[in-house]
Nucleic acid binder design. Sequence first.
DNA 1: GGAGGGCAAAGGTCTATACATATCGTGCCG
DNA 2: CGGCACGATATGTATAGACCTTTGCCCTCC
Lengths: 257, 257
Amino acid sequence: MDQNNDRTRTARPSPLHQRIRSDIEARILSGEWSPGYRIPFEHQLMVEYGCARMTVNKALYSLAEAGLIERRPRAGSFVRRPTVQSAVLAIPDIKAEILARNEAYRYELLSLRKRLASKGDRDLLDVPPAATILHLRCRHFAGPRPFALEERRIVVDEVPNIAEADLRTEPPGTWLLQHVPWHSAEHQISAVNADAAVASLLGIRIGTACLMVDRRTWRAGAAITAVRTWFPGDLQKLVTRFAPSSAAGAVSAAETR
Amino acid sequence: MDQNNDRTRTARPSPLHQRIRSDIEARILSGEWSPGYRIPFEHQLMVEYGCARMTVNKALYSLAEAGLIERRPRAGSFVRRPTVQSAVLAIPDIKAEILARNEAYRYELLSLRKRLASKGDRDLLDVPPAATILHLRCRHFAGPRPFALEERRIVVDEVPNIAEADLRTEPPGTWLLQHVPWHSAEHQISAVNADAAVASLLGIRIGTACLMVDRRTWRAGAAITAVRTWFPGDLQKLVTRFAPSSAAGAVSAAETR
DNA sequence: GGAGGGCAAAGGTCTATACATATCGTGCCG
DNA sequence: CGGCACGATATGTATAGACCTTTGCCCTCC
């Protein structure tokens, strides 16, 4: 019909399946098609856009993956009701983050011990008693100010070549991110008052609110590392933007301890 | 070849493109194929699985969307290096969340005003001076204890039928979630010390660390509502699990104020 | 009037094919 | 010897058709 259908001519006509997808998405997001609305059948859309069913299918499949619609054989595709406010949260490597802000980064190792897994380690990381744990604490500075305090346990058996890392000069998170390729993680974010030790190390007053992030990381089912990080509350904000187009269905939950 | 290829016989043979996808994903996650590795060409996989290229393409397209691989014409598909620790965070409706934990939920409206947008409102919500704002504060109780304190602005012009909601008995978040179908949002999570007002309303001591969540919500580019919620630090934890299979590429960032 | 069977419409998956597009090497030409 | 043009190759997108499963709903039978 229009020139967008003529792929040989226009500059970058943006894939048809993507155009279909965003057309429908726009109508859902604007509220024109509200939850429960049955969107046109694949066959109807295929006629409307003058394309093959596979193309329409790709668009709808993608919308279903994003959680905007629900597809039911024989019945059709329906606009879903949003359930929870979900958001994709990025918790980047601290070193990279500070450098990205054009601030001077400095790293300081406070303590480092290698030992057999304690009871606490086993509960936290689900490792056998014979596992070797590298336990360390360190600080990250942005310019002159302490930016974060970190306490970390690393399961040496899962990451044997950690021995090659010089943890006196290189942050363990950065090293792990670069040398342990892919993993799944669990985060817990909470607010705590700084106790004497934390306050002194972060250069803040006792009782100052801190953002505390606990992260556990697994690869192929085996725990690699557990880390607890404290940020002075006024220094760090976790920011996140969410649009249904980009994020997938959430598999998470909020809990109280 | 095997019975999985014979779709007419087996119980639920799981789509072929999905099997291909998880085969490859497993090899990436296990580290067998580490970052930079060039995975087999579509043509090779198509021979290996004895299927059409479109089927392989669907699997690889999906892996690329999830951010596990990067595809380059002529060059091939490569395992990506993970960049940031991203996580899908769910921030559910407070009422639903408390009820889901089998605790008694109670809602209390503290104040409610309707007025023209102030300078602060305009900066926050990007609305014209003539916009009408509903400004309210309320508390959420889990059992006998205050669970959260909420301060909210609603752009009445965008949600005219908010007038139908009885905000003296119904939490505005719950109402909005049910009546304003789809939207995008921005979250900021930080830790603050409770000031006198917050502490008194949450029944905690002044200075107690609180998790503060700021959320702004848009629909079709127009701001709907902005809300700031305080949780006593020991009552609320944001928990999130992340596996590369489920989450999409993050579009977020961490910032300092 | 209710229960069950069967039909057909809709999505789910896959094939075989086609052409577009991006880019890496190679080889030609200045 | 260096730079540029071109072709080979891998991905990107789309088509038209096929067959399957699922399931809403009608129609029949009890």
